[in-house]
């Protein structure tokens, strides 16, 4: 570009800091707009949609009987072979049939959360739930057993998900825990 003498318009722009203000409006705009940073886990936590594939959960029917009949189809369908099922006979009413799981474990280190196991389950006993806080400092949490998975997950099926809720991080001698208040939620676009 060739210089053609004095440009008044340019001078006025320089005196009024127009470019500077233009640039600053973006910055200041973000400064006053709503934050997209999720203050997880101290203040809020994302509750995923129902379709989310998180930690496995074993369900019970309305009478409290285990839905799992230990048919081993989940372990057959598993591409990584991380599910172990050993059935046993028990007609005390623990399960919906007299065949129940003696052992049902999933190796979370190997699991790739593909969801084939829940597709294979003929009784809908096995679902991939919405629990995703699976990190731990030792190997204790890598194997999840039947007893741990039968405990209902904190997010019930009735909640559709797709929003954040209020949460609080607690440090206890047993470890850290995130407690949520499911009643107060807000939609957030990410």
């Amino acid at each position: 570009m060739s210089r053609k003498g004095f440009d008044l318009f340019d001078l006025i722009k320089k005196v009024l800091f127009t470019d500077f203000v233009k640039g600053l409006t973006v910055t200041l705009g973000y400064n006053i707009s709503k934050s997209i940073t999720m203050r997880y886990p101290d203040e809020e936590k994302w509750i995923p949609y129902r379709r989310f594939r998180g930690l496995h959960t074993l369900n019970r029917d309305e009478n409290g009987r285990e839905l799992c009949v230990a048919c081993e189809l989940c372990s057959k369908a598993c591409p990584t072979g991380c599910i172990t099922v050993i059935p046993e006979e028990n007609d005390s009413g623990r399960g919906i049939a007299d065949r129940v799981a003696k052992v049902w474990t999933v190796n979370l280190v190997r699991c790739l959360f593909c969801g084939y196991c829940e597709d294979a389950c003929p009784t809908r006993a096995l679902r991939l739930g919405r629990e995703y806080e699976l990190a731990c400092a030792d190997y204790s949490c890598t194997l999840m057993s039947r007893d741990q998975l039968l405990v209902p997950q904190p997010v019930p099926e009735s909640i559709p998900g797709g929003y954040v809720v209020k949460s609080k991080l607690e440090r206890t001698p047993q470890g850290i825990k995130v407690t949520v208040d499911l009643s107060k939620f807000k939609k957030r676009s990410i």
């Binding site: 009949v69 048919c71 049939a97 065949r99 003929p122």
Partner: peptide, 9 residues
């Protein structure tokens, strides 16, 4: 039709 329970499955 109780194939998941049946030993022959």
């Amino acid at each position: 039709m109780d194939c998941p329970v049946c030993d022959k499955g």
